[in-house]
């Protein structure tokens, strides 16, 4: 359990990066720190393992004031993962993974066993990869190694600063799933920095939304989407929420509400789309092609009209902006 108690950070030159933040991360939960760039996510995270000093207020870990603990011992009990994975190029994968156990003086045998177990967890062969160097692995593999390195000495707490930020979307989703699977087993108390709303919603038990170092809302993802506490929270999730909710509406819904456009036969290679398609796919189709309209047809192939980006936007405005949408309840 980690408790932030009026935690404040003022850098030299009077930048207050974190302002009197209060919240508690329960044991075994993933809390995602979310917010725009520069809002203090990294700073807040790094205060936990004292990579940054605390200017005011305090942080307690399992009831103990972090400042009262031995700094090195504290860090060895907290797993730390960073975006660029921070693997050491001069060490093999096995050496990299076993750094903390090594610092803690584990026996050779224990380290070996632990390494095999961790590699199994991420579905990589310990024999095959153990003696390799980081640059001989793909980005996704390196990032996984970064994760198991943090898990190596089985710390109760993990800090993860945009751990999957540098990966392409497909690998990223895969590793997120894999990590959630691992978390089901290991049940760590995790603070996870992200600036990606989708990632936050997916990973978080709770989200801390920050703005300019202040805590805007601390809630479960669905609470935050459905009952934003203030305008900032509403806006922050707003645009994304709108795009997401597009997948819950079909062209037919749009047609019934505001109607389609006349289609223009003069445009030669216009694509055709079925009226039952959802609007999110329709929008990406519109964005991907050069013509600015797509012809809508019904199941029998009759042309019903055309759809354009402008029309989708107009619908979005009526349907979603007008009703503060509980469309995503239970995300």
């Amino acid at each position: 359990m980690i408790t932030f108690d009026k935690t404040t950070k003022t850098y030299e030159g009077n930048v207050t990066a974190v302002k009197g933040v209060d919240f508690t991360v329960e044991k075994g939960e993933i809390v995602v720190l979310l917010g725009p760039s520069g809002c203090g996510k990294t700073t807040l995270l790094r205060m936990v393992n004292r990579l940054e000093s605390i200017s005011d207020g305090k942080i307690t870990i399992d009831g103990q004031d972090s400042m009262s603990l031995n700094q090195t011992a504290l860090r060895r009990k907290i797993g730390y993962v960073i975006q660029s994975n921070g693997l050491f190029p001069n060490m093999t994968i096995e050496e990299n993974t076993m750094i903390v156990p090594d610092l803690l003086g584990w026996s050779k045998k224990d380290k070996k066993e632990r390494f095999q177990k961790l590699m199994e967890m991420i579905g990589l062969s310990g024999e095959k990869f153990g003696k390799r160097y980081p640059h001989e692995l793909s980005g996704g593999q390196q990032q996984r190694i970064g994760v198991i390195r943090a898990l190596a000495a089985d710390p109760p707490v993990m800090l993860m600063d945009e751990p999957f930020g540098a990966l392409d979307p497909i690998i990223r989703e895969k590793i997120q799933d894999e990590f959630l699977q691992i978390q089901k087993e290991v049940k760590k108390t995790i603070l996870f920095v992200s600036h990606d709303i989708d990632e936050a919603i997916k990973m978080a038990d709770k989200i801390v939304l920050l703005r300019g170092g202040e805590l805007m809302q601390y809630d479960t993802p669905s609470e935050m989407l459905v009952r934003p506490k203030n305008e900032f929270v509403r806006e922050f999730f707003g645009k994304d929420r709108a795009i997401k909710s597009l997948s819950l509406h079909t062209i037919q819904d749009l047609q019934e509400m505001i109607g389609l456009a006349e289609f223009d036969d003069a445009i030669a290679d216009t694509k055709t789309i079925n009226v039952n398609h959802d609007l999110r796919n329709t929008l990406s189709m519109l964005l991907n092609q050069e013509a600015d309209q797509v012809i809508v047809s019904d199941d029998d192939g009759n042309k019903l009209g055309a759809i354009t980006i402008d029309i989708v936007q107009k619908y979005l405005h009526y349907e979603i902006k007008a009703k503060p949408a509980p469309v995503l309840e239970g995300v």
């Binding site: 990579l51 011992a73 860090r75 060895r76 730390y80 960073i82 921070g86 050491f88 903390v100 800090l159």
Partner: peptide, 10 residues
């Protein structure tokens, strides 16, 4: 970042 990781790992 490498130095940071080293410190962070204790």
């Amino acid at each position: 970042q490498m130095r940071d990781a080293a410190i962070g790992l204790g």
